[in-house]
Design a binder for these strands. Structure first.
Length: 817
DNA sequence: TTCCCTGTGCTTTTT
DNA sequence: GCACAGGGAA
């Protein structure tokens, strides 16, 4: 096998990149602006160390935040080196969490003196488990959520843990809630210990504790990892910082890569000072700035830079590009959230007209914003992929199955036990569990131990005793069946616990989907067996996969939060919901620090775009499903973009195809009604086909209507056909006052809100929406959409047999039916 | 004990 | 719109 020479890893790079790649010993800070080739520098440096400096692969440790990033790097390094065989071993590429889990699974026994009850087969508690513990603690302390939100408590606890504060430290504060909070915190920690479990913070904290107190282990790790690289250093927290210090105790071959402008995880404890103070922490550090951007057009870069320049907490850098100026940044003002979503869907159609292979991302601040965009995209029959929401491993049936596995490997895992003890129902109810919890709490033991003990001592009534006894022996028997491979074990569990039967006998509409998901899980287990993983590794994997890790890059349209978009890039990007209170989020307006983080988030979102960037906001938005739409104020970030870079997208220009009006709300009501009656299962509509079919049957165009803001103006159509003629259009809502300084900064006279398009939407002759046609091959169909006119018209037609097709009239030989 | 219904109260972002 | 807690009925 031929190996690339040292020159290969430096060639094709700019001088700064070369310096970074060629740097060998001593601390190095790489300030890498968005799109400056950061990943390339990291991977090339790893290869350079291995080939040019004969560093053994396993002596190099590169740490990232997501599995996806780690996987990508692994792939790229492998490719660059032409396989690892020739160098005996691959470098170690891990996330902080996976690295620490491996460390604890391997050397965790040495933690025994430092953490009671700890063994190497501890389980990992995810966010749901954490929430469960807090709820339990609330119950024991007779509190309800009025005292404080569970999540708020959790975030306080997490913060405390990462900063070395104990419950007793909290007692010293003046906070009137301190005493109760400290009790919850204490109870929380005790639960984890009793369950032999570690939450996400613990994974890092326990690893740090082990390395800090066990010299032998630390020295071994120090000897192994001669070179350390940390990606996204701006997002490290205090514990991660400590971990890095411990790993570089005997040498300072530490290279960190980061961009303070992209620090967006402060709320999760990331400490931006880690990167701002790197040069203080490592006085001999070399600093290299990567300021040439290879991703975006000049306009996009200028806009993003202008926004982030308003921040005070930054080192400051000037990104530049040799790329062309590119298109202006489009800005659309919608009347309502619905209209914004329809605009995005329509505009995406135009992007596909321009390039049928376009890769497009729609970014938003909160997950709940995805729903409207999804609905709009379905109306156009577009497939899309949503990152986030409930991932596979968060589904109830998957969690149940995994909890059985967890309980089998680690009986003390009380949250797992609690989850499945009565799932399927086996007669162990609330009262019984309350008794068990009381005993466990009193004796400081796990629920499993308490159950066994109480059963042996005949503490239950006859009925509960039988139920508990059966459950205990069921779990014990399954535990004894160690000869089964993982997938067989899962099957066995699902059979013997009656889980399959429960789903099969249920007549709930989604039990079929659940069964399919479980099948998928069994397949995943079989794959894991093939990879040589054991149960614990399989469970670790399930606990540590992030939602972005499942990102499918093949999908043409991707919807996700701006946070999830970090590290990704797309030719076309939409940023939706640019409104005060939503983005920047109302919760971040309390402090200047939080506001700066929101601004960095804006910077991250904008710099994802390579070619075109579309911003939008709605003048009115519903905050909750039922409530009335509330008036909004455009995001301050919009006023921070230089006016000359912006271009208003107006309803008149984006609705460039004839539209026959149908009242959007009326359609939605009808669809909901009809879908509910038949096979409604999903969150919104169940499928594209369903929607197109529905409209096709009624000869309706899949087209947006002018927004109807006043609920009173909605026709109420419980049955009968919806009129194709223009629906009455509500008067535009009152216009919010412009922000001070808006006109100056690119908000000239606000264009009329929701100018009704109905008035000037004559249906062109020839082909029209809803018309029936015949195609020589596909047969009869209904026109869903017309672009252009006459024989040049591009038609989107729904065929009864062939589904949706986009055809040009004169080529396809389409005739009116 | 289980199940279903209703009312309530809220939604940031996630390894 | 949704999840969740709490109540009431079988």
């Amino acid at each position: 096998m031929e190996h690339p020479t040292r020159v290969d890893f430096l060639s094709g790079m700019n001088p700064e990149q070369q310096n970074a790649v060629a740097h060998v010993d001593g601390p190095l800070l790489i300030l890498a602006g968005a799109g400056s080739g950061k990943t390339r520098v990291i991977t090339h440096r790893i290869c350079h160390l291995i080939t040019a400096h004969q560093v053994p692969g396993p002596a190099v440790l590169a740490v990232t935040f997501t599995n996806k990033a780690a996987g990508e790097m692994r792939e790229r390094v492998q490719k660059l080196l032409g396989g690892f065989e020739s160098y005996h071993h691959a470098p170690v590429l891990a996330t902080f969490h996976s690295f620490c889990v491996r460390l604890l699974r391997r050397d965790g026994d040495r933690l025994a003196p430092l953490r009671p009850n700890f063994t190497r087969n501890f389980t990992i508690y995810d966010a749901d488990d954490q929430l469960g513990i807090v709820k339990q603690a609330f119950r024991h302390l007779n509190l309800d959520e009025k005292f404080m939100q569970y999540r708020a408590v959790l975030s306080k606890i997490s913060h405390a843990k990462n900063n070395g504060e104990s419950p007793t430290d909290w007692l010293k504060t003046a906070d009137p809630k301190a005493k109760t909070l400290a009790a919850i915190y204490e109870r929380y920690e005790r639960s984890l210990i009793e369950s032999n479990a570690a939450d996400f913070d613990d994974l890092l904290l326990l690893a740090v504790r082990l390395l800090a107190h066990d010299d032998q282990t630390r020295e071994r790790y120090n000897r192994q990892f001669q070179y350390l690289m940390i990606d996204e250093y701006q997002d490290t927290n205090r514990t991660q910082y400590d971990l890095i210090r411990l790993l570089t105790r005997t040498h300072s071959n530490l290279a960190v890569v980061g961009d303070e402008d992209q620090s967006i995880y402060g709320w999760r404890g990331a400490d931006i000072r880690n990167i701002l103070d790197f040069e203080k922490d490592y006085p001999r550090a070399r600093v290299i700035r990567l300021e040439q951007n290879y991703r975006s057009t000049r306009n996009i870069l200028a806009a993003a830079s202008a926004v982030v320049a308003k921040n005070l907490q930054r080192k400051g850098k000037t990104l530049w590009t040799s790329a062309a100026e590119g298109a202006k940044i489009s800005l659309f003002e919608a009347a309502t959230g619905e209209q914004e979503a329809m605009y995005i869907a329509q505009s995406i159609e135009r992007e596909f007209d321009r390039d049928s292979k376009a890769k497009i991302a729609v970014l938003y601040r909160t997950n709940s914003q995805s729903r409207q965009v999804e609905e709009a995209l379905r109306r156009y029959g577009r497939k899309y992929k949503v990152v986030g929401g409930t991932s596979f491993y968060q589904r109830a049936e998957i969690k149940d199955a995994l909890c059985y596995l967890k309980l089998i490997t680690s009986p003390d895992d009380s949250m797992a036990l609690l989850r499945i003890i009565n799932q399927p129902a086996r007669g162990i109810g609330k009262t019984t569990l309350e008794q068990v919890e009381a005993v466990a709490l009193e004796q400081g033991v796990s629920l499993w131990t308490a159950l066994e003990q109480m059963c042996a001592e005949r503490k239950f009534g006859a009925r509960a005793d039988a139920a508990v006894g059966a459950f205990l022996s069921l779990i014990n028997e399954m535990r004894a069946q160690t000869e089964l491979p993982l997938d067989g074990m899962l099957q066995n569990i699902l059979e013997r616990t009656g889980y399959y039967r429960m789903l099969k006998e249920s007549n709930s509409p989604d039990s079929e989907g659940r069964l399919a998901n479980l099948e998928e899980l069994v397949n995943a287990a079989a794959d894991a067996v093939e990879r040589g993983e054991n149960i614990t590794e399989f469970l670790d994997h399930a606990a540590l996969v992030a939602q972005t890790d499942e990102l499918d890059s093949a999908s043409a349209i991707t919807l996700m939060t701006m946070h999830n978009a970090k590290g990704l890039e797309f030719p076309v990007v939409y940023v939706a919901g640019m409104e005060e209170g939503l983005f920047p989020h109302s919760r971040s307006r309390e402090s200047e620090e939080n506001l700066e983080e929101e601004r960095r988030l804006c910077y991250v979102a904008m710099t994802r775009a390579e070619q075109r960037l579309h911003l939008s906001y709605a003048r009115f938005r519903r905050r909750f499903g039922g409530g009335a739409p509330e008036m909004t104020i455009p995001s301050r970030f919009l006023t921070e973009v230089p006016a000359e870079l912006l271009e208003r997208a107006r309803p008149g220009t984006f609705l460039d195809t004839p539209v026959s009006q149908v009242n959007l709300d009326a359609e939605q009501v009808l669809v909901r009604e009809s879908v509910k009656k038949t096979t409604y299962t999903g969150k919104t509509y169940n499928s594209v086909e369903n929607i197109s079919q529905y409209f096709a049957e009624r000869g309706m165009p899949v087209k947006p209507a002018a927004p109807s803001v006043q609920p009173a103006s909605r026709p109420s159509p419980p049955s009968g056909p919806v009129p194709i003629r223009a629906a009455p259009v509500a008067p535009p809502p009152p216009v919010a006052p412009p922000l001070p300084g808006q006109a100056r900064l690119g908000f000239p006279a606000t264009p009329p809100v929701a100018r009704p398009v109905a008035a000037r939407a004559p249906v062109k002759k020839g082909f029209r929406n809803g018309g029936k046609v015949v195609h020589p091959k596909y047969g009869r169909g209904t026109i869903m959409r017309v672009e252009g006119d006459g024989e040049d018209a591009k038609l989107t037609i729904s065929f009864a047999t062939a589904g949706l097709k986009k055809l040009v009239a004169k080529y396809a030989g389409i005739e009116s039916d």
